[in-house]
Write a protein that binds this DNA or RNA. Structure first.
Lengths: 154, 154
DNA sequence: CAACTCCGGTTCGTCAAGTGAACTCAGCAT
DNA sequence: ATGCTGAGTTCACTTGACGAACCGGAGTTG
């Protein structure tokens, strides 16, 4: 019973999930990282209902994760495209984490279809848990969560 | 228009999200990482509706992310608790990624309530993008996604 | 023994969200 | 004028979340 039960109401995991945890949000961002910028492309690739896509793009813009940039192409009227902000770019580790887990556990061969490589040297890229002393941790079991100072027993 | 548009149907991000992307799933796992194991504790801490919690725990067990372990405590009848499997433990980076982003962008002071420290040395822990050649990447802009060999133009 | 409590659910009515198809509207092309 | 395209909006329908109530077995209390 007496597990580590401090107050969890301010936890950042929950907060982040309210921002990008709705259906399609993270898939929209995945496409954004692949370079997709226009409504029709998001819609065609994802297959999400237009209404949902309109809503998700709107909330992502409202959250400052995407921004609407007007532009016009050759002989077309002015449109706008959706581009990642820095706040959006910083969600990249989240997507990589999801991708790595899926590659390991959902793909038949244990590696997914998309490979990530370091643009500088071409070597494959992965997420690692590291500590400030320079150690790389093997997994969650080497991490100790430290509750906030005033930890009420819930 | 001619963005990088190969086929995305097998992407692991979507697959992982169908497994743990439903509402409450990742919060259940967060609690599991904090050591919570029993239905009533999940329910009390998360505040999720019981029916939803029953369903989420069931699917997580069905997916092999949690397992139901029977046990009995002092002078109590036999109950069962939910424990992380290795497959579940490997979702840790996903939660850390969500937490780090929330700490940076949602907390007032730019750092969240829970600190993660290396159990071995006590130093703070973070996620890093590294390549096999040993470089640490600053962000998504240094990563190039490589489509699968037979990349159809969608 | 009967009543009560706790844990781990299930059931139910309501309400919000997701879905797919159809419709809208502005501007360009013919 | 007519049609086309990108970016939505509207609508009817289905699915999912919510909260409160109910259930059933094991232990505990009287």
């Amino acid at each position: 019973m007496s597990e580590t039960l401090w107050d969890r109401s301010g936890c950042s995991v929950a907060g982040t999930l309210t921002v990008v945890g709705e259906k399609w949000s993270l898939l929209v961002l995945r496409e954004a990282f692949f370079g997709v910028r226009r409504f029709a492309d998001f819609q065609r690739i994802l297959g999400a209902p237009r209404a949902v896509l309109t809503d998700r793009l709107g909330t992502l813009v409202a959250e400052g994760i995407l921004r609407r940039v007007p532009y016009q192409a050759e002989g077309e009227r002015q449109r706008h495209e959706y581009r990642l902000t820095q706040k959006g770019v910083d969600l990249y580790p989240t997507l990589v984490a999801l991708m790595q887990w899926g590659d390991r556990y959902l793909a038949d061969d244990g590696s997914g279809p998309v490979r990530l490589e370091h643009a500088g040297c071409g070597a494959p890229v992965r997420l690692a848990l590291v500590c400030e002393s320079g150690h790389e941790l093997a997994g969650a079991r080497e991490v100790r969560p430290v509750p906030p100072a005033g930890s009420r027993p819930a």
